[in-house]
Nucleic acid binder design. Structure first.
Lengths: 234, 234
DNA sequence: TGTATAACCGAACAATGTTAATTTAGGCAT
DNA sequence: ATGCCTAAATTAACATTGTTCGGTTATACA
């Protein structure tokens, strides 16, 4: 009995090494955000969840924004990781682009709060060179740029091979990103809006992007191919 | 001298009829949002700007959200109005759709804070039936729906006339909206991100949407027409 | 000119992010 | 084991936020 109490007390007042506590805070913050939304998560509630006081958090993070930033960073690396996986599993370059777009959307829709944080609020400068003065590791420093370059490379490749209409590949990549982002952000924000049918909208959206990019020949080829395959045409 | 002081004092302590003060608060709030961003505008600063105390605001608005809501409402009606105007000025149905999309984007980019408020945050239920219990006038009640229906009507019309690929017109309208929204919201949020060239991205985006919608025949017709006209092809 | 309505103010409330001074857990040398 | 010393965590406060309540007083109207 004494032992148990000792253990419990020990567990409650346990001091953690900084890195471990840091990860715990981020992890709990993610969960709380998903449960209650970013706005209503306070330093106090976050501290309580971690078994420490709100003031203790400031030993691990400069301020609240630093926590948000760390979460964005984690989301970016997760996204790049998922991109890599889907790219590996899909040999056809055109289908690969579509698959990546799907991954982008699915990931965003399944991590709404993190997505909102990363792409819908301007948490310092995540998208560019991370001017955090050596605060973050250099390999994660341009996570946003890495993810975006990944997209742009596919596109310039597809342009070169004649699948896509010619044009400024950077601008096109940004336009595609914007299109995908649009649907995700709308679905996330206006949850209660009566969408006609989410799956239908998603497919309509992908179809819009795809046909917006293809050359006439590629579109024709794709149409005949998809009819032969499954009849499920985009 | 006495007179002047009296006038000034009178001006400072002037009481306004409710509706007038209400409009003043909304107007000043819009300006402050544009200057400092929504987050850092407090009830106190807003009150100061209007020449009254923060407490007085609560006689005109239930809470801060009510002010935000009113601004969203105003933005919606402005948007519908702009839609009407551009629709009038453009006879060709296809060009009309493009023009409307352009208006949507331009308006959003020139009213970033109001746009962010209206489409990027979930301020109660703006998009649906305004469950504000008779708090707003009935003709403004479904401003969001009105704007959206406006878009959907053009699209189903263009589908019927064979300009656009067939499909669920509601889902397509939502997809288009999402695509347009994507660019606006990204440009608004990531101001400091080094875009390749904003005008190029905008045109690439409109081109993406357009070609994503058109039937092959319509695309061909448009291509030849635009070459004959100005050479400025989308 | 007097009166009553309601627009406005002053002062306070609880909750938020943040900081400083203090306490104390827990690894390390002895 | 024992004692020390670093630093993780706490306690107590700060300023600022949105919001409320009871009293003041401008101002329209009789």
């Amino acid at each position: 009995m004494d032992k148990i109490c000792a253990v419990i007390k020990h567990a409650v007042h346990r001091r953690l090494p900084p890195q471990q506590r840091r990860e715990q805070i981020i992890s709990e913050a993610k969960k709380l955000f998903a449960e209650q939304g970013v706005a209503s998560v306070t330093m106090r509630s976050l501290g309580r969840r971690c078994g420490i006081t709100q003031a203790s958090i400031y030993q691990h993070f400069a301020d609240k924004d630093a926590i948000l930033f760390a979460i964005c960073d984690a989301y970016f690396t997760l996204m790049v990781e998922e991109f890599r996986k889907t790219a590996e599993n899909e040999p056809d370059p055109l289908q690969k682009l579509l698959a990546i777009m799907r991954t982008y959307m699915e990931l965003g829709l399944s991590h709404p709060e993190e997505y909102r944080l990363t792409f819908m609020t301007s948490v310092s400068g995540i998208m560019q060179d991370h001017e955090t003065a050596g605060h973050a590791a250099p390999d994660q420093a341009k996570a946003g740029s890495i993810a975006f370059n990944f997209l742009q490379e596919r596109i310039s490749g597809l342009m070169a091979s004649g699948h896509l209409r010619h044009g400024n590949s950077a601008a096109t990549a940004e336009a595609i990103w914007a299109a995908g982002h649009g649907l995700v952000s709308l679905l996330i924000t206006h949850t209660r809006y009566t969408w006609s049918d989410i799956e239908a909208v998603k497919e309509a959206h992908l179809g819009l992007i795809l046909h917006g990019l293809l050359t006439r020949e590629a579109a024709l080829a794709l149409a005949t191919a998809s009819v032969q395959n499954s009849g499920k045409a985009l």
